[in-house]
Design a protein around this nucleic acid. Structure first.
Lengths: 112, 112
DNA sequence: GTATATAGTATCTAGAAAGGTACTAATGCA
DNA sequence: TGCATTAGTACCTTTCTAGATACTATATAC
């Protein structure tokens, strides 16, 4: 979310949310982490149902540019590309975990 | 970020990020927390420089609707309105703290 | 020679979030 | 009488993010 390249972040929170605040970003990191830190493009596509390939590619590219994901291309046909979290990306996992737990709790509360 | 009312969240992470993923949301919660959990509208306006009153009001309203902020109106003129975190809002503080720390660390790395 | 699999691109459009500017209410005070 | 104060509204425009649809490359299997 929010223009990332044009204007510098106003603070660390701004910086951080620009990197993981997108619609699917946190989920992508989380799913890869949960699959032993390796997922292929097609697996992600299935997991995040309803995402278009354009959006998935675009989001993966941003995560890669921001140093949160590794992209490993195998020189074969049909193509095989694997995504995995970098060390930096890994550092976000506890945060994603906790905020997911918070969300789950709130959703339960709301549904009562 | 992301349409919040029309379509139900796909998961807890989606739910959570819809609530604190906005451009200023995490910062607002954080600043209020840091000011002993009370801030007036005008104080926030000064703190978050460059935000328009329209955006500030809108964001505060959303946070209130989502049960993260209390809004206390004093019946006096000129008006006085105080914002403070709810218990639920408070629960987000550790995460905001964590991700802010992550952001700070990354920014330092980048600047080297 | 054709079909299949995989990881994408390209182009156009819709929708959501954010920004700009101007304006308001009601009271106390000079 | 007129001005300052505070917390907003109203209305319009711009910018960003996301979605829809169609299309591509190339080795291998059949």
């Amino acid at each position: 979310m929010i223009k990332k390249d044009t204007i510098p972040p106003v603070c660390a929170l701004d910086y951080a949310f620009r990197r993981i605040g997108g619609k699917h970003k946190a989920r992508i990191l989380w799913y890869i982490f949960k699959q032993d830190n390796v997922m292929r493009y097609g697996e992600l596509k299935k997991r995040i149902q309803n995402i278009t390939s354009k959006m998935l590619t675009q989001t993966l590219r941003e995560l890669e540019e921001d140093g949160l994901l590794n992209r490993k291309v195998y020189a074969q046909v049909p193509p095989k590309v694997e995504y995995s979290l970098t060390t930096t990306g890994m550092e976000l996992i506890p945060f994603i975990d906790h905020i997911g737990a918070w969300g789950r709790k709130q959703m339960e509360k709301e549904s009562q």
